[in-house]
Computed example of a mutant assay.
Amino acid sequence: MISKYYAPILSPNQCGSSLIQTIDAPLPLVWSIIRQFDNPQAYKQFVKSCEILSGNGRGIGSVRELKIISGLAAKRSAERLDNLDDESYVMMVSIIGGDHKLENYKSTISLHEIAGDEEKGRKTAVIESSLATVTEKMASAR
Rank of each mutant, 00 (worst) to 15 (best):
V47T: 12
R35V: 11
L111N: 11
E65T: 13
S88F: 06
Q41Y: 01
I95W: 00
Q36Y: 00
T108K: 07
P12S: 10
T124C: 08
S62G: 07
K123V: 05
E87I: 11
A74C: 14
V93K: 02
Y89Q: 10
S77K: 08
I95N: 08
S62R: 02
R35L: 10
P26H: 11
A7E: 14
S94L: 09
V90H: 00
V30R: 10
Q45E: 13
D24V: 08
D117Q: 10
E51F: 00
S17M: 15
L19V: 14
M138D: 06
S49K: 14
I60M: 11
S18D: 11
E119V: 10
N39T: 06
L10R: 11
N56I: 00
E65V: 10
V134M: 15
Y89K: 15
V90M: 02
E103G: 03
S129I: 03
I52T: 08
I68A: 09
D117Y: 02
V47G: 13
Y5M: 03
K120Y: 09
E128W: 08
G59Y: 01
K106T: 13
L111S: 03
K123N: 12
A115I: 12
M91W: 01
V134N: 07
P26A: 08
L53A: 04
E103F: 05
I95K: 09
L19R: 14
L66P: 00
R64I: 06
S32L: 10
A125Y: 08
G55L: 12
E103C: 05
P40T: 09
R35M: 14
E118A: 13
V30C: 08
G16M: 10
L111C: 13
Y5W: 14
K44P: 00
S110Y: 03
K137F: 05
G59L: 04
I69H: 12
D85S: 02
L131V: 12
